[in-house]
Amino acid sequence: MGAEAFRALCERVRERTRRGPEDRRGTLGHLTPARVVAATREVMTGRTVSLGAPVDTRPGPDNPEPARHVMTAPEPGRRPSTGLDFARDRFAMNVHGDADSHLDALCHVLFDGTLYNGVPADSVTPEGATELTVDVVRDGVVGRGVLLDIPRLRGVPWLEPGDQVTAADLAAAEAAQGVRTGPGDVLLVRVGHRLRRRELGPWKAAEARAGLHPDAVEFLVDRRVAMLGGDGNNDAAPSAVEGVGFPVHVLTVHAMGMHLMDYLRFEELAPVCEQEGRWSFLCAVAPLRLPGATGSPVNPVAVL
């Protein structure tokens, strides 16, 4: 996609999803209380499945700054005492890396000097963001989740790095799985990134990864999706757009006001959906309350 075509797509997406100038929730506006109530009817067996990957504390080609987990008590070599004591630990993470499951807040993507809905870029300060932070979703996101499995559609275990998922692919996956994405849904798109990483080992995902083609975003607009999650970055690499490294992030987070979840894990969910013959479920997303943050570690849960 050329630069001019991308700009035209960006403006078209923005116009089709435009809300009032004071809006700070973006596409979460599609997820009404009535749709939350309706989503609870997706629960049939009560089975719960984690959609987050285990936090990776090992360095690797896709994780040069791994999360750090250290025990702060008891002290090494200290003999257990009688009575009460506590084990304690500390945790630190590079939230927007290429290994760990995380949620992107609407202040994460700066494009042409602004954030979503024209919020000035200087609202992101060295002390933290002052608008569109992860606090927008402090009450969590609970709604109907839909998993579209693109490797299943193509008859392969995973998509190879650099492959791209189009709007036509998403529609074909719906037809193959007998499901339809609707207003207020949390759409999850599997490309098989996690399975490939497990089977072949990590690689430089910043340079090569499967993801959505920019034209897939119009599918999200048409269906009035509330939130998007993928088992990769959602953006493919190399980018489909010259001069724009993360076009899907620009179109969703910046133009639409859509929270993204990157590097989720669907290897437990997909077999359960296959066994039960249904690809929709109740989905609960509860990011941490981190004042001023541009994102959060996340462990969404599917309830079937």
Results as ranks from 00 to 15, higher is better:
91 F>Q: 00
274 E>I: 06
152 R>N: 02
282 L>E: 12
264 L>M: 14
210 A>D: 05
125 T>P: 05
71 M>L: 11
195 L>A: 08
274 E>M: 07
87 A>S: 04
248 V>A: 14
126 P>F: 09
270 A>R: 12
45 T>P: 09
166 T>E: 07
44 M>G: 07
114 T>K: 00
24 R>Q: 02
155 G>F: 14
186 V>M: 10
219 F>I: 01
75 E>W: 12
58 R>E: 13
295 G>V: 10
91 F>W: 11
262 D>F: 13
20 G>N: 00
107 C>Y: 02
34 A>R: 08
107 C>W: 02
121 A>Y: 02
246 F>L: 15
26 G>T: 04
304 L>F: 15
159 L>R: 11
68 R>V: 15
203 W>T: 00
268 E>D: 15
105 A>K: 00
153 L>P: 10
187 L>N: 07
100 D>G: 01
241 V>D: 09
82 T>H: 06
87 A>H: 07
166 T>H: 14
142 V>M: 06
203 W>E: 07
248 V>P: 15
245 G>R: 13
23 D>F: 03
10 C>K: 01
248 V>L: 14
285 V>K: 08
129 A>C: 05
145 G>F: 12
143 G>K: 02
134 V>S: 05
162 G>L: 06
121 A>Q: 02
53 A>C: 03
240 A>D: 09
67 A>Y: 05
109 V>I: 07
185 D>I: 03
197 R>F: 05
286 A>C: 13
154 R>Y: 15
236 A>E: 15
247 P>C: 12
